[in-house]
């Protein structure tokens, strides 16, 4: 419908997108790339990393907003690579490089934007987590179990299970591990046992081929969701 689309300007280029489209996606649809770290198309954007900031408005009344959540408005003037945007983005990258010196993806991204070193005191050299919360959001929004969450405030902020104990809600699905852009979350699989978030999960072998399918806890979760008997999930997808 014509009514539902809005016209705005991104980097001097007039564009039309459906009303409410996040500026990040509006730019993307017009082949303008904005770097992101905490954004994931399957998750509700929350504006954690601040890498995707863009400048909106016209001088002298402009401000930075995160493009992953800010909706396209009629007549909005957006700059995705103004001096202010680039300075802010580089500073955020410097801060992240100091926070997560071991983050390879982060280093590559920073280098691509001309940031090769940080002027800030580096934290733990092995640190990789950038607190983007993709794991937490995946667990809550996609898996639907909320086994992990952000815990504490700035000085001790981290992703954790409740009270840092083995989470009863966790189904061992490993989605958090899969989604993590920095390979931070510890995860092992050995002798039919998967270990994640400090809890061991027994893996269910396929009734036909014997290959492991998934943790029993995860299949039980599926059974609960679908109402089917858990045994109906004891055959792997290749053998079905």
């Amino acid at each position: 419908m014509k009514n539902d689309s809005v016209s705005l300007t991104i980097d001097g280029k007039p564009v039309q997108v459906p009303a409410g489209t996040a500026l990040l996606l509006a730019a993307k649809a017009n082949n303008i790339d904005i770097p992101t770290l905490c954004y994931h198309p399957e998750l509700k954007p929350e504006g954690h990393c601040r890498l995707c900031v863009v400048e909106i408005g016209t001088a002298p009344r402009t401000r930075l907003v995160n493009s992953c959540t800010y909706p396209a408005e009629p007549g909005l003037v957006v700059q995705t690579a103004s001096a202010k945007v680039l300075a802010s983005r580089r500073m955020v990258l410097e801060l992240l490089l100091a926070q997560a010196p071991a983050g390879e993806h982060l280093k590559e991204m920073a280098a691509a934007m001309g940031v090769h070193e940080t002027r800030f005191k580096k934290g733990d050299p092995a640190a990789r987590c950038i607190l983007c919360a993709q794991c937490v959001r995946t667990c809550r929004e996609v898996v639907g179990v909320s086994a992990i969450s952000m815990a504490f405030r700035t000085p001790k902020k981290r992703v954790a299970t409740p009270f840092a104990e083995q989470s009863e809600a966790c189904i061992g699905c490993g989605s958090c591990v899969f989604i993590c852009p920095t390979n931070t979350i510890a995860y092992t699989e050995k002798d039919g046992i998967r270990t994640v978030w400090g809890r061991k999960f027994e893996l269910q072998p396929c009734n036909k081929c014997g290959n492991y399918i998934a943790p029993k806890a995860q299949l039980e979760h599926w059974a609960k969701l679908t109402g089917d008997p858990v045994e109906s999930f004891y055959v792997c997808k290749d053998c079905r």
Binding site: H48, L95, Q99, A133, R153, T154
Partner: peptide, 15 residues
């Protein structure tokens, strides 16, 4: 007191 959600505040107050 910074909640630590966004990078500039979390890391900025630290540095």
């Amino acid at each position: 007191e910074s909640c630590g959600k966004c990078t500039p505040c979390r890391e900025g107050t630290k540095h």
